[in-house]
Simulated scan of single mutants.
Amino acid sequence: MVWFEIALVVLTLFTGLVWLVDKLWLRKRREERAGLLEVHEPMVIDYSRAFFPVLAAVLCLRSFVAEPFRIPSSSMMPTLLVGDFILVNKFAYGLRLPINNHKFLSIGEPERGDVVVFHPPQYPDQDWIKRVVGLPGDTVAYRNDTVYLNGQPLSYEPQGTYVGKGRGSEATGSRLLLEQLPGRPHQVLERDDQPYFMQGEGEWTVPAGYYFVMGDNRDNSEDSRFWPEGMHFLPEANLRGKAFLVWMHWDGSAGGVDFGRLGRKIP
């Protein structure tokens, strides 16, 4: 998505500059030269005047209000499915400049359980989505399919066997559990037959200014447990925003649009 941001910023600046220069200097010169004749505007000025307000509005909305993203993988199932189109609150954790993601106004900080979009430290040009499990100062451990938070195991309520559809059918047969993350209980998936990764067991203490993130699909998520040594934590500077709503779902292998997911809040 970085290339789109760059293109949007460049086009907004270009059309805005053309419109401003024309308003301050060029238009007056054309009128003086034309005299009583009809004034003809160059095409680039005409298009710039028409598109600048639209581009500026889109840029401001995407940068400071809400930005759409599409879920490309199954790492956040069952909360988010492949083919979900989501909206991300861009001001939940502060206002950031487009392209370089520099925060110039602090508003809030992630809470435990938030589903966040971010640039992973090992792939800074990509957008990933996971759930915040560990806050700065927390000690997070993962053993025997159980998350331990500051030495205490989370409790899990069995909710049956998961049945996926479309591109998410690979998760069929997983155990569906309600994980009692403090302040934010949510569903997770666990597999006993053929985990996609090694279990990712270990213990990590989250440093100041960082977060420990995990996918809800615990055996199919490249999250903080598996990131390279020295990069297990998500820097606060890499946050893009907080996911809050599914506004569309399209999965061609499952019949196209799933109207039942439209408008669904993200727990």
Rank of each mutant, 00 (worst) to 15 (best):
M198S: 14
E38R: 14
A50R: 14
E203S: 14
Y47T: 08
N217I: 06
G94R: 07
T172P: 02
P98N: 05
R96V: 04
N89L: 05
D114E: 05
L81K: 02
G255A: 03
E229T: 09
G137H: 01
K23H: 14
C60M: 04
F233D: 03
G137P: 01
S253M: 07
V21L: 14
P120I: 12
W247Q: 01
K242T: 06
R131I: 07
L87C: 02
P78R: 00
G241S: 10
L177A: 05
F197V: 07
F259R: 12
K130S: 08
A34W: 14
W25I: 15
E170K: 02
D125Q: 13
K130N: 12
P42Q: 10
Y148Q: 12
A66T: 05
H249N: 14
V147W: 06
K23C: 09
P185R: 06
L177P: 01
N101T: 06
V39G: 09
T172D: 06
S253Q: 11
P68I: 04
V115I: 13
T146L: 04
P207V: 07
V58S: 01
L262G: 00
G151V: 10
Y162H: 06
D219Y: 04
Q180L: 13
T146Y: 04
L81Y: 03
F118N: 05
L149T: 10
W227K: 06
L37D: 15
L24T: 08
G255Y: 06
Y123V: 09
S48F: 13
S48N: 12
A34L: 14
A57F: 08
H119L: 11
Y142L: 10
R191G: 04
C60Q: 00
E111H: 05
R240G: 11
M231I: 02
L37R: 15
W128R: 11
L262R: 00
G166K: 02
G263R: 01
G209M: 10
R27V: 07
F51K: 00
L239S: 03
L55V: 02
W247V: 12
P267V: 04
M43R: 14
F259G: 03
N144F: 03
S73N: 14
I129Q: 03
G255F: 07
L24G: 02
L177S: 05
S63R: 01
P207Y: 02
P124F: 07
A171N: 10
Y196R: 09
R112Q: 14
S75F: 11
L149F: 11
I129P: 00
G173F: 04
Y210D: 05
H119D: 10
F14M: 11
